[in-house]
Design a protein around this nucleic acid. Structure first.
Lengths: 216, 216
DNA sequence: GTCAACAATCGTGTATACAAGAATAGCATT
DNA sequence: AATGCTATTCTTGTATACACGATTGTTGAC
């Protein structure tokens, strides 16, 4: 547990939302949360205010907090921005690559290879995250890295849904290969384009997403 | 004043920070703020938590809140991301332009022309903001628009500093012209590239920024 | 004279009490 | 029976009280 209850609650509730324990549209009652976590309403309120500021919930004055439901279209927009940011990170990584980042990317990439070969979708889900985080870090822009990590978190549930789509696993890995090649070759523009394509969800992948969102 | 004191305070303190009334590194004492605004500590704390979540201040547990000092390098990184996001907005705008957005861009653009011609740097500062906001809106992506607006806000003080640089006003406006042409021509890639160049601060413009930041 | 330890003070973190607005249910009236 | 009004209840918003940790100042020892 974090140093103060407020932050701990924020993380706790945030996770509950991102893992769909609190469904979109659901009302978050301060008193209920307070008793549930065995604290007073004060830290609960502070956690909620932060989640509101981040954009995970909406606090309607005098009417309580509800979990925001992004809806397919907004999720698409979020992936669109994510693709752009990752593209930037990739292009920076290609230009600024140092030994440590190179090793981190290689390591996570080969772990992806293993889980892809094993067809282990859960393992790949985790390794894939680490691979992308290695690229964010390799970009050597603290601000960009933070923005990427934040959006990455918010998109986590939908990414998980996506991996369930047939063949997505091997497709994803071969895209990773091309990305790694571009970055290691120092080709920023190529890395940017490949990452944009890899992260963005166009065409039928969007309908896959909509379908899997509706299926929950 | 907003519906509840907490939000009002958040906006109030946020503005005070962005307008440099609270300098970076300054300690924000809850009690002092509470008495200053004539409220209790509770809404002050809620406002501070939100500003912490946004990234404007840092709350160190049991040690109070301080205004974050981005420092030249981090500001550069923020402009880098801003450039990327605006580039995306521009490319979307070029593809999705409708009549209303076209008119909004035209209107704000011509207002920029007037203040640039008049050499009125303060007026240009304002009109420039509206011009960029018109492009965000024209992209027709709510999420992207929100992200752009938020970053735009945070970069506001530095943008103002930049305009003080010699000749920046007319240079800026001629760049606007090219951007408008590209968007109206439906050339997304061109719009993206031009906006990236317009917003980003490379080369000597970065040293201009550092110099003006140090001069404060 | 300097450094360390202890005490006092100040400020944050949490709980609780109180006030005010929103939702709801019951009653009356048409 | 349906609709509108009122009263009650429930939840949020704000204030205040209390506790605990951090900071700082003072005193004593080396």
């Amino acid at each position: 547990m974090s140093e103060n209850v407020g932050r701990w609650l924020r993380d706790e509730i945030e996770n509950s939302i991102l893992s769909n324990e609190f469904s979109p549209g659901e009302r978050l009652d301060e008193t209920v949360l307070a008793t549930r976590f065995g604290v007073s309403r004060t830290p609960v309120r502070e956690a909620l205010m932060q989640l509101d500021a981040i954009g995970l919930i909406e606090i309607r004055p005098r009417r309580g907090a509800i979990v925001i439901d992004p809806g397919p279209h907004r999720v698409y927009e979020m992936f669109e921005v994510m693709a752009e940011l990752e593209g930037l990170a990739g292009s920076l990584a290609a230009r600024r690559l140092d030994e440590a980042s190179r090793e981190a990317i290689t390591a996570t990439h080969s772990r992806c290879q293993q889980s892809a070969a094993a067809g282990d979708s859960d393992a790949y889900y985790y390794d894939n995250e680490e691979f992308h985080k290695a690229i964010y870090a390799a970009g050597r822009s603290d601000f960009l890295e933070e923005q990427c990590l934040q959006l990455h978190r918010r998109l986590r549930p939908y990414r998980r849904l996506q991996l369930r789509v047939r063949n997505r696993l091997s497709t994803s890995f071969s895209e990773h290969c091309a990305i790694v090649d571009a970055i290691f070759a120092g080709d920023g523009d190529a890395a940017r384009g490949l990452l944009r394509g890899h992260v963005g969800i166009q065409g039928e992948r969007f309908s896959d997403l909509v379908a899997s969102m509706a299926a929950r």
